[in-house]
Design a protein around this nucleic acid. Sequence first.
DNA 1: GGACGAAGGACCC
DNA 2: CTCCAGGGTCCTTCGCCC
Length: 644
Amino acid sequence: MAAERDSDVRAPQAVSSDGAVYETATGRAEAHYYHFSHDKAGMGSVDKAKVAAVVHSMSEGSSFYRNEERRDARIQQQIEGMRRRWQALREGGLELEGAAATARRERAAMETRRRLDRVWVVVDMDMFFAAVEMRDKPELRDQPMAVGGTGMLSTANYAARKFGVRSAMPGFIALKLCPSLVIVRPNYDKYKAAAKLAKQVFRRFDPQCVALSLDEAYLDVTDAVSRKLGGLPAAEMAAFHEAVWDVVAAIRRDVSVATGGLTCSAGAAPNAMLAKIASDMNKPDGQCLVPFDAGSILGFVGALPLRKLPGIGRVSETQLGGLGLRVVADVRDEAARLHCVLSPRMATWLHRVSLGIAESGRSGSEAGAQYRRKSISLERTFRDEGSLAALQATVAKLASKLSLQMQGSKAAAEAGSSGADGRQAEAGRAGSEAGAAEDDGVQAARPPRGHVPGFFGMADSDSDSDDAGRPKVRPAMRGRTVTVKLKLASFKVLQRSATLAEPTNSAEVISAACKRLVAQESERFKAAHGGRPLVLRLLGVKMHGLVFDDDVDEEERAAAGHMCKLDDGSDEDDGADGGSPERADSAVVGQGRRPVLRAVLDERLRQMRRHSQQSQQQHPAKRARRQPGGSSGQRSLSGFVSIS
DNA sequence: GGACGAAGGACCC
DNA sequence: CTCCAGGGTCCTTCGCCC
């Protein structure tokens, strides 16, 4: 293993600026229901057609499948609308003229904001959960195995991937594809321990590194690289690239040593988005460097299939594909027309990203600001249930568990030691009635260290103690808006929410509010369906509009001095980075006020830019108007692509 | 024209 | 035998209320 890594550590071959290296399998997966993410590492030899056939035969006729078909039909219809408009723009001129001018200005403004002076690294553990299990149980090494349950897998090893098994695939389908598959139940404590070891390594290279999940971290290693260069500015690009390459190699080596042989892949680039993309290019156990010059970057992103962009998922890929766009460079070429067809944000975002520009700045001065979650929720899937009483019992149980979590570490600790207070005893009974009780008793009784990390949880609480070994305190919080999530037996999802007069974290209050919403919906459903009961397969309870108890102190401090306000709708996001390229001078943006985590995530998590077809068709005139007209000039689209 | 609440979605891991 | 998760974030649209 060491040898393998060595060899690829040794070759600081940067990407050629024409991007040819990355002209990967554009193997257009026939846009349909079940390509669970195509060219994943280790899948080279999979018989895709066969896998698709098996998956299809397993799903056909199921409620899940029918729901997917409905969804797909809707999307296809949207695409039809987009297509017509897209074609119309090809012929007609005026609107496009304006848009082209806008796009040109936009691009110039964006180019202004391109930064090449920071070195970002994204590290991604290879098949993390499976790797940990294999490390601890060598007999699993050469076996196809996956971590998860029959319901859903979270990751699979490479032996399993050869059969077409992959993460986010339901376990029962995976077993069909690979009858010898060993499915291991997840053991999060082990994964957390391993992640903690890795993070200790990351901190040596970037004390402020941010973990997005157990298996992925973002590092700004600029300082480490310049130390490597002896504090001198790199005389030339090659030396600089080599230094970057070596730092990344060192990180990966140290991670492997620290974790007892787990491997990871990494990408390095001038911004976090590019680094993220690069981290995926040489998986597993490899690394990739995007050169630090605009020309190379344009070549690199340009050649990528759109799906590689974090933020472009199954739907967006299909939509853009419907317009004939396949690769990032296509988007760049069509920036003007896209401005006429997509929502303004989506268009602007795509344009920027197609240039390989992203803002992953981290404001050093902002170290004090902790990340604040925006919502907290709990949901449970169970066997189809039509009895309102049973559903309400589940609601009560979810509400009381959520309440407990919201009360912070102190409450959780008490509950953990006492085993079961009144609320939980009640919840336990209720749960078994609803048939959703499996692991619940255990979970509820778990001490504070137990609870699920969540997507962001790791950002500052990857461990239960701080660096000095003091136990970490989870602040109590209250929420003002409560939402119930209902997934019908048909897989259709509904959400019903209500805003309370006062923020709360009381189990009773939350429970009562949720029960009311569920009862209402149940009535409505019966009325609309000739008395048929509402049959659900999932219930969820969520709270948002959160206020944190320890923010009270912060407000006091704020009164005395600086500190920005972090929570409540006032979103420090002022117009959103991509939103207004006009204020290109907003070097100030990303300069101060954002919490560390937000700044880093900015790019990758805000991009669910989707747009609604309907509205665009309903208000074409309005849309046209908002494109600042003016300008003329002949500009051939090719002029767009050139790098100045 | 906002700000705010509600509902529905896309996406990520 | 088992039959598609759960925890988050952000975007968009719409309606209501200034």
